[in-house]
């Protein structure tokens, strides 16, 4: 991927009302573009989300002035804030455009939130993901299953069979889950360091929650044993040790605040067993939490 700044041209904004009815904000269309019918200098933004799936042809998809290869099987989830355009390098390019508002899947979204944090991007408050995070949405080799799901979506949308809207919602969810798995897998496969850094990021930000190795492995889409191995290679400690370290350092910091009891601190820092917390704390700091707190108070030395 290389930067290619052609962002000085016209800008278009597509409101949702022009593309679908408000009671069912979804559409899927198969499109064919040729270099002649496409103005590369125009930047498009939308009120809705868009998934682009490439059926044939090749070229570049330019998103926020970064270009990504377009090849059959490439898939891009375009955030409403993204400014996009195409550069078509073949005779023509055939794509599916899937347009939707997040409300369409909001019912099931909460249940999916923890999966790689992927679905948080569809939340209302999600506006400024960093570029590396945004890249999780671009899958360059989406595989047969994705193609199959998109075909089913297109068929349901076109045929309008009984309960087709529910089926579309379900297929859309299935598609997004599939994309999230592929994104995580991509990170793990192509950027091993990124995966371990992402785990480190998750530990730092979510250590208060019930993080397990299985959950973390699921989040980056690689096996637990492999994740453990690459994490240890990188940080010279196990994921469990890292998580414990983060929880204990938070506990030590919180012990400076008298307003909280040791038990409150224990649970606040992600421990779910007080005696284990005491044991681990004693092991790291050489004294139990209360003594540690007492010692902290002893540091008021006189010069």
């Amino acid at each position: 991927m290389s930067g290619n700044n052609t962002g000085g041209g016209r800008k278009l904004f597509f409101p949702a009302r022009k593309f679908f009815f408000s009671e069912f904000p979804f559409s899927i269309r198969r499109m064919r573009h040729t270099p002649d019918d496409y103005d590369e200098s125009v930047r498009c933004r939308r009120e809705f989300w868009k998934i682009i799936y490439v059926i044939s042809g090749h070229g570049k998809k330019i998103i926020n002035e970064r270009s990504y290869p377009l090849e059959p099987g490439s898939l891009f989830v375009i955030h409403p804030d993204d400014a996009t355009t195409f550069r078509i390098e073949s005779e023509a390019i055939e794509i599916y455009n899937i347009l939707f508002m997040p409300e369409l899947i909001s019912t099931g979204l909460n249940e999916l939130k923890n999966d790689f944090d992927f679905f948080s991007i569809f939340g209302r408050d999600f506006h400024s993901p960093d570029p590396s995070y945004r890249e999780l949405l671009y899958v360059l080799d989406s595989g047969r299953e994705t193609g199959s799901l998109i075909n089913k979506l297109e068929k349901e949308y076109r045929q309008e069979a009984p309960n087709y809207r529910n089926m579309i919602k379900l297929y859309l969810q299935a598609l997004l889950i599939n994309i999230s798995r592929l994104s995580a897998g991509k990170i793990a496969r192509k950027r091993k360091d990124g995966a371990v850094q992402y785990i480190e990021h998750l530990i730092n930000e979510h250590f208060r929650e019930d993080l397990t190795l299985e959950l973390l492995a699921e989040k980056v889409g690689i096996s637990g044993s492999h994740l453990c191995r690459i994490f240890k290679e990188h940080y010279h400690c196990t994921i469990t040790e890292r998580l414990l370290e983060r929880r204990l350092s938070c506990a030590a910091a919180m012990l400076r605040n008298d307003a909280l009891t040791v038990t409150e601190i224990c649970f606040e820092c992600g421990f779910n067993n007080l005696s284990y917390f005491y044991r681990a704390f004693n092991n790291k700091f050489g004294m139990p939490p209360r003594k540690f707190r007492k010692n902290l108070h002893c540091i008021d030395i006189l010069p």
Partner: peptide
Amino acid sequence: VYGKIEELPIKQLSIHH
């Protein structure tokens, strides 16, 4: 020097922090 201080209201932090 104590490292990262948890973000708490000033009255909940000791004067050491």
